[in-house]
Amino acid sequence: MTSDLQEARNVATVSSGNSKKESLTMVLDLSQSKQLKYLSLGVLVLQTTSLVLTMRYSRTLEEDEPRYLASSAVVSAEVLKIFACALLVFRENNFSLQGMSLLLKEQIVKKPVETLKLAVPAGIYTLQNNLLYVALSNLDAATYQVTYQLKILTTALFSVSMLGKRLGLYQWLSLVLLMAGVTLVQWPTETDEDTEQEVLTAGSQFVGVMSVLMACLSSGFAGVYFEKILKETKQSVWVRNIQLGLFSFMFGLVGMMAFDGESVRRSGMFQGYNTVTCAVVVLQGVFLGGGAGYCCHLSVQLRGQTCQQKRRQSVAREPREPRRLTGETAATLHTRSRTLETVSQTLARAAYDCRKCRSTSQLRGV
């Protein structure tokens, strides 16, 4: 009986030590997850801001040679995006070309229905990228950046209608404040100084604003549609980006030849390219496409880790139910208790006999 009690104490001590270690590990994981989340958010904000400023500068830069084609920049960015995602898939397969080729063949060629689902967001993203170039050619960077934040409103509305998400009161108030801020930015002002906003004609401003609004609608719908596809399948984010890039490349190439085919045949696809144009293409294709995919992949992982940690904490906080005894265990305990009772009675009788013998011997001695 004493050995059983000692064993139970040892088990309790070990379990308490393990629970403390698990709680410490969960705290460290949560802190690292928050740091990675904020780091990825900061990098994405830096990439987006630098892309907007660089695109605006490249579209307003005055040079002797003709300006580069926006459709050509979109196609080049999609090629770089496919190449960057292919390198990441190659890394995930332990730098094995055979493993990467087998994975791409299995996920893309042998699943044509799943691949064709990405044709819809690919076409919308291609349209959106071309609209962004039109908007930045007709709006200043500040107005474009603030107005383009309406994609948060469109994404929220499409998430409620397509994914069935529910928004809280503070979230709806934030969207209303966003609408008010965009309205104030577009409100006309009268100043004596010749600013960039006044230099732009009313027609170009209207074209730029309409391009931004159409880009916001397309961005919200395509983003929610792409999220729905990712939730329905278990394919890698990088493989999905490759599928998306292939369709975007085809749609962009068709659009370039349809609208700018004569210029391409006359001066080539890369006419007007310079260092700034190459920076725009790299930011849009490699950094923004790969960075957004990485942030999406990281957020899914962090969300899964956080859910698992919360589940473990809730399980640890739940009161444990008393152990239910089976029939065999109850019979064993009953037998042990009867044995202990018999032993205790025998010891009590022996002690009584010893006291009785001592008292008798003392009386005889007297």
Results as ranks from 00 to 15, higher is better:
G245S: 13
A77T: 11
A351W: 02
L184R: 00
P121M: 02
F95K: 11
F90E: 07
R9L: 08
C296M: 11
S137I: 04
D140M: 04
L347N: 04
S96K: 12
Y148C: 03
E106T: 10
R312A: 12
V300F: 06
M257S: 13
T183D: 00
Q301L: 11
E318R: 10
E78Q: 13
L51N: 01
F83P: 07
E328N: 14
S344H: 05
T183S: 03
E341D: 09
S314T: 06
V11P: 09
L244N: 03
S248G: 09
F221W: 08
T2C: 11
V176T: 11
S159P: 07
V280H: 10
L230Y: 00
K105F: 06
C354A: 13
Q205Y: 01
A12L: 11
V199P: 01
L184F: 00
E92M: 00
L127A: 10
V300P: 01
R355M: 11
L28F: 00
A292C: 01
R317F: 04
G261H: 15
T143Y: 02
N18G: 08
R317K: 07
F287I: 03
S33C: 15
F287R: 00
M250H: 01
A180F: 04
K151S: 06
Q47H: 03
T346F: 05
I124Y: 01
V52Y: 08
M250P: 01
L36G: 13
V207A: 13
R265M: 05
S361A: 15
A331Y: 10
V45G: 00
V366L: 11
G168M: 08
R364Y: 02
E106Y: 08
G272K: 08
T60I: 09
G272A: 09
L44K: 03
V366H: 13
G17P: 15
V43Q: 06
Q309Y: 04
L150N: 04
D4E: 13
T277C: 13
G220F: 03
Y352F: 08
G17N: 15
Y57A: 12
S361M: 14
V239W: 13
P121G: 02
V89P: 01
L178P: 03
K117M: 15
S76T: 04
N10L: 05
V134D: 05
L69M: 13
T201K: 12
V239G: 13
A222P: 01
A142S: 10
T335H: 11
A77I: 04
R56T: 14
L340M: 04
G208C: 09
A70L: 09
S161Q: 01
L157H: 05
A331M: 14
Y144M: 09
L53I: 12
L347M: 07
L131D: 02
F90M: 09
A202L: 15
K81L: 09
V45D: 00
S137E: 15
T154Y: 03
V199Q: 06
T339V: 06
V89D: 05
T335I: 08
S337E: 09
L200W: 02
E7Q: 15
V212R: 06
D260C: 14
N18M: 15
M100I: 02
A330H: 09
Y148P: 00
